[in-house]
Amino acid sequence: MADKKKAGAFDIRIVIAALVGIYGVVLTILGIVEKQAEIDKAAGININLWGGIGMLVFTALFVLWTRLRPIAVPVEEDATEQ
């Protein structure tokens, strides 16, 4: 059981933030170099740029959340009955 608790420290929030963060960087760069034809396709919105920025903001919030409320592993040992 002790093993399991340690392994449980794997935090899905970091994984999500990493994937969305990479997407955010890629899309933002695409958005910066976007051709006008692509912007016109999306009804005049540079959706790659705005979408990318949105994802970077999301990533920042998730990282902040992970920092402020890290997973508390040992404290809850007594809470899990069995």
């Binding site: 899905i12 994984v15 999500i16 994937l19 969305v20 997407y23 999306a42 009804a43 005049g44 919105i45 959706i47 705005w50 979408g51 949105g54 994802m55 999301f58």
Partner: peptide, 23 residues
């Protein structure tokens, strides 16, 4: 865990589509 990741990817995929469409 993958379902949670999927949830965010699905939202990240469909939300921009909706906003561009509405515009």
């Amino acid at each position: 865990y993958n379902e949670v990741l999927q949830f965010f990817v699905i939202v990240a995929a469909l939300l921009p589509l909706t906003l561009v469409g509405l515009h």
